[in-house]
Design a protein around this nucleic acid. Sequence first.
DNA 1: ATGACGGAGCGTCTCCGA
Length: 261
Amino acid sequence: MAVRVATWNVNSIVPRLPRVLDWLERTAPDVVCLQELKNTTEAFPFDPVKALGYEVAAFGLGRWNGVAVLSKIGLDDVVRGLPGEPVFDGQAEARAIGATCGGIRVWSVYVPNGREPQNPHYGYKLEWLAALQNVVRTELAQDRPFAVLGDFNVAPTDADVWDIAAFAESTHVTEPERDALAKLREAGLSDVFPRPLKYDHPFTYWDYRAGNFPNNKGMRIDLVYGNAEFAGAVTDAYVDREARKGKGPSDHAPIVVDLSR
DNA sequence: ATGACGGAGCGTCTCCGA
């Protein structure tokens, strides 16, 4: 059976809804992890998404963050929030949601940005990634295909940013952030590396400013980290940069992963 | 052309994003 799984940071679901619905229709993924919904759980546009055949598990706490899992192949054992996650500035944030879809366990994650290495948000980011490591170890104890998909806000290698020199003193490329990803791989997850539809590297994010998209000044910070059962079933994976084009896009492009089970 | 920030809210600025 073929299963199509996708992840996409939509940068606010309400203004993006027409584009997201159109993309869902054309791409027809079975399971979709969404990030940066920027609204509350109740305000998620359930009806038009359900009309396309999806069950929806959303988790939003206000104007920032917000994650969801959509599925056409079942949606069970939903967990809202990352068990053991840290709290920043006394405010709970909706950055993770887990669900089981047709026997595949997925976590949709929106890792904290970190802002600058000197900012308390950076420490929060590292603590959040440590909590993710613990959840991953727990999930890996289960014998089933499993993946963490989403906006990790970390570029795993220097090749994952358009110019490493432009990132001196910046988050997203520091050793501790990359170590956190390495620990996920050491625990048993593989980086499901997508193919680009154009150019030689599968960037997933391009800043809106300064013509970064047309100039392909991008970053690969949206990732699919799967266990052996998940990664071993992958038949194709690509970044849909077409979704970054035109008027009113998200600043992130979706990643589409095809599995044969 | 892919084309030179955008979203949200106690809002006409400020915060946040990466």
